[in-house]
Design a protein around this nucleic acid. Structure first.
Lengths: 194, 194
DNA sequence: TTCGAAAAATGAACTAGATTAAGAAATGTA
DNA sequence: TACATTTCTTAATCTAGTTCATTTTTCGAA
């Protein structure tokens, strides 16, 4: 069994790669291990790669002028972590991507993967379809953040990601859901009571 | 000059279509006019098409259980309007898309455009690149909605979309920015004073 | 196994922004 | 031109969620 089975499996859920295509894609993958608290993307540096999480967990967050962290996304196994704005424009990132656990990742460099998208129609389709899906979810999150109360947002998240909600630190989840850690604590406490 | 010049021009900013490709794409375009207040997407109906705005303005909004409207996106000329979640899954929409002005649109039907994406690599690339861009912006909006105050969100929008901020009704903009129309009125008034 | 630092919980005072309601202005329509 | 409907404004009241200061718990490292 191929060491890249996980990511190929993910891609083949959307398209049907030929053996040759699989090999080309695998040939540009770089494997790394990352320790908890380590950053793989930092403000000021260009996000060079699409990063696939084989094992572990990451978050992307934004640090505002007042020193407050705002978590943009949380990802675990079989997800991608990217600062898309930085990646697609190849301009310096404005966010951090931090390992929440010791992790194993596959990285595909911009200068390798973008030409490959021009070459392999299936790969282009894969990223088109997955990005459309991610975009649709992002829109749903915008609706939630506009229309729901803090407690409703927590409930929705807990229902949708039961395997993540208790895996990440509370202050990370609070900053993802757009509330203070104190208030999230209060919400959880209210639930534990009843 | 081709009647589809506007949309072809948009596509050719990202990829270089051949004449044959251009003709295939144009052959599936349906042109319509839509009156102000008319819906082109409604809850319960599947979003069948990608809609390109030639002239006019639209908004996509969600109606919650309490009867409140939450505007998800606002689009004018040279933008696409789609309920992506409904479109990609071909499931009933949960949102409305409403014409804010009398408008002229081009529509490409799911069953025509999706096979064409499999056939024309350039088209697949076009949608991949534009969706990645839209996704990156959507993420920025999530950050804004989490980290900025209502007034800062208004300022940011006014700076980024000066040509739209005074073109749409105030209650639409308020529901897009996630605040009450009364509060938006207050903000605008504060600015007019100083 | 104990120590120290980071994370979580608690509670009280505070505020951004919502809600309500009523009137004024603008806009469309006959 | 006038009437009806939609949109915007103003101001008072209310509350979800923040801030800050303190205490308690958790957990990794030695």
């Amino acid at each position: 069994m191929n060491q890249y089975a996980s990511i190929l499996n993910n891609i083949n859920r959307y398209v049907s790669l030929t053996k040759v295509e699989e090999e080309k894609i695998c040939s540009i993958i770089k494997t790394s291990t990352v320790k908890r608290r380590q950053y793989i993307i930092q403000p000021g540096f260009v996000c060079q790669s699409r990063t696939y999480i084989v094992e572990g967990a990451f978050r992307v967050f934004h640090l505002d002028e007042e020193g407050k962290e705002h978590t943009v996304s949380i990802g675990v196994e079989d997800w991608f972590v990217t600062d898309f704005f930085s990646y697609i424009n190849q301009t310096p990132a404005q966010n951090y991507a931090e390992a929440l656990e010791n992790s194993l990742i596959f990285q595909m460099h911009y200068e390798d993967i973008e030409p490959l998208c021009k070459e392999i129609h299936n790969l282009s389709e894969y990223f088109r379809l997955t990005t459309e899906k991610a975009f649709a979810h992002s829109r749903r999150r915008v609706i939630s953040s506009i229309s729901l109360t803090a407690e409703q947002r927590y409930d929705e998240y807990a229902a949708q990601y039961p395997h993540i909600v208790n895996r990440v630190p509370q202050y990370v989840l609070a900053s993802y859901l757009g509330m203070s850690p104190e208030f999230l604590s209060k919400i959880r406490n209210r639930k534990a009571q009843s």
